[in-house]
Design a protein around this nucleic acid. Sequence first.
DNA 1: TTTGGCATGTAATCCGTTACATGATTAG
DNA 2: CTAATCATGTAACGGATTACATGCCAAA
Lengths: 193, 193
Amino acid sequence: MRQRDKTPYALLGMLTLGPQSGYEIKKTLEASAAHFWSESYGQLYPVLRRLEAEGLASSRRQDKGGRLRKVFAITGAGREALGRWLQRPPEFQPPRNELLLKLFFGRHAPAGSGREHVLAYRAQQADLTRHYRELETRLLREHPRHPDLPYWRMTLRFGRRFAEAAIAWCDETLALLAREAAEKDNDNLGGSG
Amino acid sequence: MRQRDKTPYALLGMLTLGPQSGYEIKKTLEASAAHFWSESYGQLYPVLRRLEAEGLASSRRQDKGGRLRKVFAITGAGREALGRWLQRPPEFQPPRNELLLKLFFGRHAPAGSGREHVLAYRAQQADLTRHYRELETRLLREHPRHPDLPYWRMTLRFGRRFAEAAIAWCDETLALLAREAAEKDNDNLGGSG
DNA sequence: TTTGGCATGTAATCCGTTACATGATTAG
DNA sequence: CTAATCATGTAACGGATTACATGCCAAA
């Protein structure tokens, strides 16, 4: 298996929660880890096939209410491979933040567009904090003794802290943008008056 | 120009700082925006060529101390294209955080590996906060009246706030991991005794 | 003299998304 | 009836990195 390709490990990890179909894996991912990981079908299905070919997962066809499903399970070799990967230090990935890039060039942007972007981002992050809080509450209620719970919570906490930091930053930034806009207005008045 | 490809705009934006060679653009990017944007040469040079073909940038060969450089400048059409892009709302990009993924599956990881990853991340973020602070100080000292300064500061503040949030999260997480490790030890003692 | 930085580019490859294609079942 | 959801996959494309290839200049 390649070094840089993390999708196989993400899928193996998902299979530690129990045997699942590709479709289910995606749903589970979206419901629990969307804020830090995602996979597309175009990636997911071929990789599952590969995992099976390499003996890291096994599959059996299942008939569920007339629908055909292909349910995958992690194998012993799969668990070992996952464990080895979990031990390796995470690779640093160069971030790309389009909002910051647009702000960085803010002086050359149409008036008010920076403010709009930041407002939209703030709203999105506020929604997210609510979402994280709900998720955490539901998790504690529905799986209070699940052995994975502490780990799931850590990732949720990460999301919450970052969303809160983002909101604070938005407020600070909106104030700075307002000041810039005011100074620009002043310059214009001074220049013409 | 394509919709999704942001590299051209990043390069046009860099050219608003003045005419530069591809090599210089990369250096500038690394010195000022590394925490939210990066480009590789394999991407940068072909895109510069494309920008010129589309009339958004112009170039002239320059002989600097015997070395041949190809210096690019943004054109009027380039400024317009940049302005239009700056106005469009930033696209949401699904994040991928390998550290969180590894933590999420932490129960299946070799003992202590989660802790190590978090410690390494914490150290990295602590370095970063120092770096941001220095950069901001230097910026204020060296370019106190630069019209782009307020915008550059906003992105720096983002970096600092996020690094600080990351450190707080690390400390919280390290405590939770320690508790998990302790409980695991207890279980083992109870099971064998 | 040899290492590091300046400087430009191409080719191979990979990873990932999007669009396409298909079809059954279930809930409204 | 029909829209949504379950379910699996492939093909095309695009964006980005990495490795490769080259060569000059300055400083140690």
